[in-house]
Nucleic acid binder design. Sequence first.
DNA 1: GTCCGATGTAAGCGATGCTAACTTTTCGGA
DNA 2: TCCGAAAAGTTAGCATCGCTTACATCGGAC
Lengths: 201, 201
Amino acid sequence: MTPKAAYHHGDLRAQLIEAVRDLVETHGPDGFSVAEAARRAGVSSAAPYKHFKDRPDILRAVAGEGMDRLRVAMEQAAAAHPVGSLEAVAAIGLAYVDFARTEPGVFRLVFGLTEGHENAPDLQEKGECCFGVVVKAVADRLKRPTNDPLVQRRAYMLWSFVHGHSFLHIDGKTRVSAARIDDWLYLTEISKGVLATLPGA
Amino acid sequence: MTPKAAYHHGDLRAQLIEAVRDLVETHGPDGFSVAEAARRAGVSSAAPYKHFKDRPDILRAVAGEGMDRLRVAMEQAAAAHPVGSLEAVAAIGLAYVDFARTEPGVFRLVFGLTEGHENAPDLQEKGECCFGVVVKAVADRLKRPTNDPLVQRRAYMLWSFVHGHSFLHIDGKTRVSAARIDDWLYLTEISKGVLATLPGA
DNA sequence: GTCCGATGTAAGCGATGCTAACTTTTCGGA
DNA sequence: TCCGAAAAGTTAGCATCGCTTACATCGGAC
């Protein structure tokens, strides 16, 4: 099973995704080339096109895989706290920020897709699943159904908050603020604030 | 003054920036090439390198110019409302979102720089100026000095909120939320909520 | 008027995205 | 068990791109 053993080594697709993920992480979303990924996988530069349509298609796959991991991380974070607790909500936010911090390249890829994946229904669906995790936690907390507009609205508020913080964080913009930020305290405070103001529209 | 009249037409640099901005807007931050920009400006593909060091340098210039326009838009938005009013704060946020919506490509460029401009002191400074607009409005509202950590903290909260909303908006992620969002109401609500919870750390 | 620097062009190198045509391996069905 | 098609790899090659080098041209200072 050495890499050289097989003409068809079977898992080239997975190996390419892994290589691309690494490249995206170390050289930024732009500093990646299909050729370099193929080189790392030990195959010719034309081989990737047997598994992916084109360059955006590869990035799409990496983004999709990243979204799956993000959703799992959020679910696990929520599951570590009592259902309906404020901590569960804050933990989801922290998982989100942690993901952005540990894999800024993939994170940026997931949310910065503008090459050729505007119409990528699978990515759209994965994204809605991620949002669904937040919605569920908020619904549990507020003791309302998930399709309640108020729940959706609060969940979106929390999401945009955490999303913005994540981006500013990986862009190094947090340093402009004099006070250093403790993510857990910050997210707890935000969650409480957003979920408390029930009289909103 | 026809474009053909001059061998040195004098404003090639500005013309290139304009062309790049258009390309970034229509084809995404990645779907831009120095060659295409030169073609649009009617010069040879080597001409841009007389004005810019390399490709990232051009993008940096476009980003810087975009940041200037963003700051001006925020300042004007704030100036349209009484000093210290909640509306001034919300208006700044709306200007931010509007910028992202009107020029998603440039907006993404400004905040997604990962090619070769980690150490771009001028961009860093421009960014801090933008943040300064928010800080000032918050300080006026809270009747506290701009260097008060509480002011900085509230301003950062508002910024991350608006920043996240902007990104989610241009990524088309807002549609996952059932209820349609009225930006002005939304931003007013957020501003009030964030600035009201004074007992925060 | 003349010279020099700023600004343009032309030509070319190496790398890239992707395709075409070919070879090798795998595997399901007669 | 063999065999033929599809899957998965290869090499070769085209057009484009980023960027450099060497050369051409303009415009202003003296």
